[in-house]
Design a protein around this nucleic acid. Structure first.
Lengths: 201, 201, 201, 201
DNA sequence: CATGAATGAGAATTCATTCAT
DNA sequence: AATGAATGAATTCTCATTCAT
């Protein structure tokens, strides 16, 4: 019996991501993937049930990898704002390092395929960030807003900047990234009376 | 290719958007569109050169319509913060009213198809917002940051909230939207020394 | 609009029957059929929903044609034995004339595909023969046996002889066929006390 | 290709017959067989040269088994009619006991695969029946007809009744079977002048 | 002997597009 | 302008078979 060749699985994944990013989900066929991965079309079906499954597994493992890269080594005893910036900085840097992953995630999660993903698993990946928000809210350091709002003004703007970076429209230098992280933090930190009138309860 | 029956063209566009939103760009075929629009596949080719052209035209007309809906009636003599909030509020409301358009735009612009779009045309649509940013920066009311950054902390967070709304995860009520607009404005308005160290030049 | 080309449908049917008879249900592909029928594979799907449907339609139309060929012009006022022989003779001759039809029917109805056929429709095709049996039983001319038994000793032996004919193992001449029909009739006609002990009630 | 593990070979055969009967020759694949037999696809090729060979071996061994079951213990010194009925009764009962075998044989022998079978071997299996017919003809007890005709009115009607039994359309009870055997015998026994005009020479 | 991995060829079906009316 | 028929090319996926262990 021949053992499973993890190199082959890797090649399939890489080829898939590359092709999907360049040609799109709509215009990437299993045979193209096979060709680029240097395997037979039939081989893909040893590692993945079908095309839908292949795409789903890609999405999940990219999310998993991002989550690990962002949240491992995360020290929760640091001051909240430090922790916050560390996480966002790592997120930014992770996706700068893995632009293909970022592009794939964006394409996948803006397609209807996303609806077949079990959301609870994905939410687990964000757990540490949610915990941070919750602690901040309890300690009256972060505005008492739903996590979705907090993400909208912190995580997603950063992700938007990753996009700009990758398109070449705006590439932040180190100082600028730091200033941006501060800006994100300021937008959710509870430091002035003016914020008090925002209420979601 | 020259349009005649406006009803038919409309039917084709609506069917396309609906199918693409529900099944995805990858899984929507010309014959499916034809069937749902109650026309012959051949008829689509009277109004659109081919599939790529159809998708492109859809994208452009949705962008155009959004731009019109957001920027018409916009009074530039109002105070900047008022103008700013008006625009964002209109953007939010427009896409709440046209969720199919929003979903389509997200899917299209996160796919490689977006690269074939002439960006200058799209930028025109955002012109008024860019002007507003520029005026604000000149008058030292808005932080002296690239427009991409300003968009990342104002327009895109709002768009993210539209997404949350549509997925049902978080539906803002009127007061909450207003608070959010203030939050967006606060994040880019230049009102304290602390901001001064952020520099992009 | 182009009109449906009945020649094409005919060509598809003929090619299918020929290939299935020569290579078997298992080894006949849609593209082989298309090639032999001189149409594109896609064209078959204009006339038939899918492969299963194609085969089913073939079966049904061959049965229908056989039934028409055997039962049209059938005069029910003749003596029962005459009627009986006429029908069997026509059945024998029909399938000798259409050996491809006979072979196809045998292959199809001995495969699991037969289970998806609505049996009531097929039974309708045999109606006149069943009626004849029933009349014969009422008039005490034919043994009082279930139609299945009567068929087993009349229709099916004749069909078996068609098979032998086609394989070349035994080709009946006219006189021999007539003798055989008499033999079939004798086997079910009620003419001697000896039969009386056979009872199915 | 040399067999070792008898259990495995049996499992492969049983799985094949079951699948072919349920799904058909066309829709039964080697891997399906392997899965149902709880072996690797590669294992099948240890016992059988290829798929065609597998099917052929199945056919041959089922025929062989039927022949043994029907003809062993057959006492040729009994009166002809007794012998005749014994054989047919055994045939009927054998296939009632092994419906899967019957169904497989019907499907196989009505497909073009049958043409690759060496007919002389099969005929050997029927030898005792042919001998019986020949003796009967010599002794002027059985009509002087070709064996094919005699089979058509005796063996095949009985087989047709097996089919009806299995489909549930007509299940003979013991008495009815006996009556049927008499009917079959009557149809070929030479007992009246009327038969004399049937001639095949 | 036995296996699961691996595969090129080919399966059924649909695709985007054009044709003929 | 509008259509359903028609199609060659391409799709996803499975097949029978062989390989490497």
């Amino acid at each position: 019996m021949r053992a499973r060749d993890f190199k082959k699985e890797e090649a399939i994944c890489e080829a898939s991501i590359d092709l999907i990013n360049r040609k799109g989900l709509a215009d990437t066929s299993m045979s193209q993937i096979a060709k680029q991965a240097n395997v037979s079309p039939a081989t893909i079906y040893i590692y993945f049930k079908n095309k839908e499954d292949l795409l789903k597994q890609l999405y999940l493992r990219i999310q998993r990898e991002a989550s690990q890269s962002i949240f491992t080594g995360y020290e929760s005893f640091l001051p909240l704002d430090e922790s916050f910036k560390i996480l966002l900085r790592k997120a930014y840097q992770h996706f700068l390092r893995k632009p293909e992953h970022f592009v794939f995630l964006e394409q996948y999660s803006n397609s209807p395929l996303i609806e077949k993903i079990d959301k609870t698993e994905i939410n687990d990946y964000f757990e540490p960030l949610y915990n941070l928000f919750d602690r901040g809210k309890q300690n009256k350091i972060i505005k008492d807003l739903p996590n979705e709002m907090l993400l909208s003004f912190t995580f997603y703007p950063i992700m938007q900047l990753v996009k700009y970076h990758q398109s070449g429209r705006l590439r932040l230098e180190y100082n600028q990234l730091e200033a941006t992280l501060t800006m994100a933090w300021n937008s959710i930190k509870k430091d002035r009376e003016i914020d008090s009138f925002i209420s979601f309860r």
